[in-house]
Design a protein around this nucleic acid. Structure first.
Length: 259
DNA sequence: ATTATTTGACCAAA
DNA sequence: TTTGGTCAAATAAT
């Protein structure tokens, strides 16, 4: 199985999910652009993201959200802590403080920051307790005008998804690839479970290394993909029975230029 | 009743 | 001592 196949399938499933919802909306003549636009975004973004995985078995850095402007994404490693675990850290700017990233979070603190007129909010993974997931994030408004901008900083990797997935696979106890399939009825699904991706515009993406900086130029039709296997593409736990089985994806026929 | 958020207290690092 | 991050009791929401 090529690297990223799971995420590709997840992205395709999200696209399918949004396509269903879009179909339902259109059938009921609820042609409200506010309702439809996010669905179009999700469909397009999901397929684009999945295709980007097919286009490279070596995943690239972070993706951007359609909720956010194509602001630079900063990915950096925390300084080493004398042999202690190094936590990866990513920052992401968005005009929407409740930007959907596909994960479930629990707020555990809020603090006035000296250098800012806005408070900083602290969140940890909703599964931090039962699955010992150490992932956290901080959200803070960093700009008021001309438009508000919120910076979300993610600290640490999610391990909750991996464990849940393995657990479910064990339950099934056969060799098939299993993909969770949340969508049974096509009623509204919380936006939080629909990570949204968008093409990054001509902006440069800055990646700060520990001792050097690297700048990547992106064309308007290119997509940047996070290299963290779990980053931003977790589907939260679903009701039992909503599964889809696929044959071993290693047999998938990959023709990048014939898609 | 259970789960999530708020908010002052506490703590460690600078 | 100041500051930012986390804890945990109180409160709110479901």
């Amino acid at each position: 199985m090529f690297y990223g196949a799971d995420r590709a399938v997840d992205a395709l499933l999200r696209g399918q999910e949004s396509a269903y919802r879009l179909k339902t909306v259109l059938e009921h003549q609820r042609t409200n652009s506010v309702t439809i636009e996010p669905l179009f975004d999700t469909v397009l973004d999901s397929f684009s993201f999945a295709l980007s995985l097919f286009a490279s078995s070596n995943p690239q850095p972070h993706c951007e959200s359609s909720q956010s402007k194509a602001t630079p994404v900063v990915a950096r490693k925390s300084p080493k802590n004398h042999g202690e675990e190094v936590l990866e850290q990513y920052s992401h700017d968005s005009p929407n403080p409740h930007h959907s990233d596909g994960f479930s979070w629990r707020k555990y603190g809020q603090k006035k920051i000296k250098t800012s007129s806005h408070q900083r909010c602290y969140y940890r993974c909703a599964y931090s307790k039962d699955r010992s997931c150490k992932a956290r994030k901080r959200v803070q408004q960093i700009q008021d005008s001309p438009s508000s901008v919120y910076r979300t900083t993610y600290i640490g990797k999610h391990i909750c998804e991996v464990n849940a997935f393995l657990q479910l696979n064990d339950d099934i106890n056969n060799g098939s690839k299993m993909i969770r399939f949340d969508k049974i009825d096509h009623q509204a699904m919380p936006d939080s479970v629909i990570p949204q991706l968008v093409p990054v515009e001509q902006d440069a993406i800055l990646i700060e290394g520990t001792d050097q900086n690297m700048t990547l130029e992106c064309g308007s039709n290119e997509f940047l993909v996070d290299d963290d296997q779990l980053w931003g593409y977790q589907i939260p736990p679903c009701s039992p029975g909503n599964f889809m089985f696929l044959d071993d994806l290693s047999e998938f026929d990959y023709h990048p230029f014939h898609l």
